[in-house]
Amino acid sequence: MLGIRLDETLEHRLDALAERTQRSKSFLAKAALLRYIEEEERKQYENDLTVARWEEYQETGETISNDAMTDWLESWGTDQEKSCPTK
């Protein structure tokens, strides 16, 4: 169980939204918290992935050239779309 103290302005906004949507304040708060947590988890996953990629690069020095990436991107949406370049 979680209890949260809201400032007066936020409390009034939540009350108004609950009334307009005919949802409980608890329902709205739970939905908002769920969205926030999912977004923060996604950001953390992306950050972890970026760090892992950076560490791999530092160990191997392997990259994909800008020309290869540009060539691939320019093929998007054409009949001759190319596969993603690999190291």
Rank of each mutant, 00 (worst) to 15 (best):
22 Q>L: 14
35 R>T: 00
41 E>K: 03
43 K>Q: 11
21 T>C: 10
27 F>T: 15
25 K>V: 13
19 E>I: 08
18 A>K: 00
41 E>Q: 05
44 Q>D: 02
15 D>A: 11
28 L>Y: 05
49 L>C: 09
22 Q>C: 14
24 S>W: 11
14 L>M: 08
9 T>Y: 11
34 L>V: 04
15 D>Q: 13
3 G>R: 15
14 L>V: 08
28 L>C: 05
3 G>K: 15
43 K>T: 06
40 E>F: 06
28 L>S: 02
21 T>P: 04
11 E>P: 04
49 L>W: 09
31 A>V: 06
22 Q>I: 12
28 L>M: 07
45 Y>N: 02
47 N>F: 15
25 K>D: 10
16 A>V: 11
49 L>Q: 14
32 A>E: 00
36 Y>N: 03
4 I>Q: 03
31 A>C: 06
35 R>M: 02
36 Y>E: 00
47 N>W: 11
33 L>T: 13
29 A>M: 09
48 D>C: 07
49 L>E: 15
13 R>N: 14
15 D>C: 08
47 N>R: 12
8 E>H: 09
17 L>K: 09
44 Q>K: 06
5 R>L: 12
11 E>R: 08
42 R>W: 02
27 F>C: 12
4 I>C: 02
36 Y>G: 01
24 S>R: 12
21 T>Y: 14
33 L>K: 06
24 S>H: 14
21 T>R: 15
14 L>W: 03
37 I>G: 00
25 K>I: 13
7 D>P: 01
10 L>E: 07
18 A>F: 00
22 Q>N: 15
40 E>I: 07
